[in-house]
C-alpha cells in the first residue's frame, strides 16, 4: 500500500468531485462523474479491495454514468448551477 499513490488518488478524487458538481454542462458533469468513479475504483484496488474495485468499475462507473447520460439526452444539458 504505497501511501504516496494513495494520497495522490485521494486528492484527485476530491478535485474530480468538486469539478463534477460545478460544471454547468450536465453531459460533461456526467462524464467527470465517470472519471470520479474510476479514480475511486483505482483507489480501492490499491487498498487490496479488488472485488469492490471490480464492481465499482463495472456497476458504479460504467453503468451509472451511462444512465446519467441517457437521462441528460432525454432532458436538457443546460444547468443553472
Amino acid at each position: 500500500m504505497i501511501w504516496q499513490f494513495d494520497t495522490l488518488l485521494l486528492v484527485l478524487l476530491i478535485v474530480a468531485a468538486v469539478i463534477s458538481l460545478r460544471i454547468k454542462d450536465l453531459l460533461a458533469a456526467s462524464v467527470v462523474f465517470g472519471i470520479y468513479s474510476f479514480l475511486m475504483c483505482l483507489l480501492w484496488a490499491v487498498m487490496a479491495a479488488v472485488d469492490v474495485a471490480f464492481t465499482e468499475a463495472a456497476v458504479g462507473a460504467g453503468v451509472s454514468t451511462l444512465f446519467m447520460i441517457a437521462t441528460v439526452y432525454q432532458t436538457t444539458r443546460r444547468s443553472s448551477d
Binding site: D51, T55, A58, V59, V63
Partner: peptide
C-alpha cells in the same frame, strides 16, 4: 479470483448496452 455474480451479470448487461 475476484469476480462472481454481480460483476459477471453487469458485464453481460453491458454487452447489450
Amino acid at each position: 479470483s475476484p469476480g462472481g455474480g454481480f460483476q459477471g451479470g453487469v458485464i453481460i448487461g453491458a454487452s447489450f448496452l
